[in-house]
Amino acid sequence: MREADNDVLIRGQLYVDYRPTALASGELQLPLASGVVSVDDIFGDLFELCVGAPPRFTTDQITVFKNAGGAHLDLFTAQLLARKLGIE
């Protein structure tokens, strides 16, 4: 299963909820197997993102968050980013 194409993974700062689970997902297995991205392209996991890892370094970059767990993790991440950006 994939929700994002290779271009998104290449252009974005890639974060995952939990590395072992995300690496087992189709979203990352296929691009990893074909060499589009490598494990080193993962900037951090959910914990690292929440404790202060920058979701992007310039305003023209995008943040890609691969959640292989429940949708609640997407909600938690969106709420954290909204608070950090002052959008509540």
Rank of each mutant, 00 (worst) to 15 (best):
residue 1 M to R: 05
residue 1 M to Y: 10
residue 1 M to G: 14
residue 2 R to Y: 04
residue 2 R to W: 04
residue 2 R to A: 04
residue 3 E to F: 15
residue 3 E to Y: 15
residue 4 A to S: 01
residue 5 D to T: 11
residue 5 D to R: 13
residue 5 D to M: 03
residue 5 D to L: 04
residue 6 N to F: 13
residue 6 N to M: 03
residue 7 D to Q: 15
residue 7 D to S: 06
residue 7 D to G: 07
residue 8 V to T: 08
residue 10 I to K: 15
residue 11 R to I: 01
residue 11 R to L: 11
residue 11 R to C: 08
residue 12 G to I: 01
residue 12 G to Q: 05
residue 16 V to R: 06
residue 17 D to G: 15
residue 17 D to T: 14
residue 17 D to Q: 13
residue 18 Y to M: 09
residue 18 Y to L: 08
residue 19 R to A: 13
residue 19 R to S: 06
residue 19 R to C: 09
residue 20 P to H: 09
residue 22 A to I: 00
residue 24 A to F: 04
residue 25 S to R: 06
residue 26 G to P: 01
residue 26 G to W: 00
residue 26 G to T: 03
residue 26 G to E: 00
residue 27 E to G: 01
residue 28 L to I: 05
residue 29 Q to W: 01
residue 29 Q to L: 04
residue 30 L to S: 07
residue 30 L to Y: 09
residue 31 P to Y: 01
residue 32 L to P: 01
residue 32 L to E: 06
residue 33 A to D: 12
residue 33 A to F: 12
residue 34 S to W: 01
residue 35 G to C: 04
residue 35 G to T: 07
residue 36 V to G: 02
residue 36 V to L: 04
residue 37 V to C: 10
residue 37 V to N: 09
residue 38 S to D: 12
residue 38 S to Q: 14
residue 38 S to Y: 12
residue 39 V to H: 12
residue 39 V to L: 11
residue 41 D to N: 15
residue 41 D to S: 11
residue 42 I to L: 13
residue 44 G to V: 06
residue 44 G to A: 12
residue 44 G to E: 07
residue 45 D to M: 10
residue 45 D to H: 12
residue 45 D to P: 04
residue 47 F to K: 13
residue 48 E to Y: 02
residue 48 E to C: 03
residue 49 L to H: 05
residue 49 L to V: 10
residue 50 C to H: 00
residue 50 C to S: 14
residue 51 V to A: 13
residue 51 V to P: 06
residue 52 G to I: 05
residue 52 G to V: 09
residue 52 G to C: 10
residue 53 A to H: 13
residue 53 A to I: 00
residue 54 P to R: 05
residue 54 P to L: 07
residue 54 P to C: 04
residue 54 P to S: 09
residue 55 P to C: 04
residue 56 R to V: 04
residue 57 F to D: 05
residue 57 F to E: 06
residue 58 T to S: 14
residue 58 T to N: 06
residue 59 T to D: 15
residue 61 Q to K: 06
residue 61 Q to V: 03
residue 62 I to D: 15
residue 63 T to W: 07
residue 64 V to L: 15
residue 65 F to C: 02
residue 65 F to S: 02
residue 65 F to G: 00
residue 66 K to D: 00
residue 67 N to V: 11
residue 68 A to E: 11
residue 68 A to K: 01
residue 68 A to C: 11
residue 69 G to S: 14
residue 70 G to N: 13
residue 70 G to Q: 10
residue 71 A to T: 12
residue 71 A to M: 06
residue 72 H to I: 02
residue 73 L to R: 06
residue 73 L to T: 02
residue 74 D to I: 08
residue 74 D to H: 12
residue 75 L to H: 10
residue 75 L to V: 14
residue 76 F to S: 11
residue 76 F to Q: 10
residue 77 T to E: 05
residue 77 T to A: 07
residue 78 A to R: 07
residue 78 A to F: 11
residue 81 L to A: 02
residue 81 L to P: 03
residue 82 A to K: 14
residue 82 A to E: 13
residue 83 R to N: 13
residue 84 K to H: 11
residue 84 K to C: 09
residue 85 L to N: 12
residue 87 I to A: 07
residue 87 I to W: 07
residue 87 I to C: 07
residue 88 E to K: 06
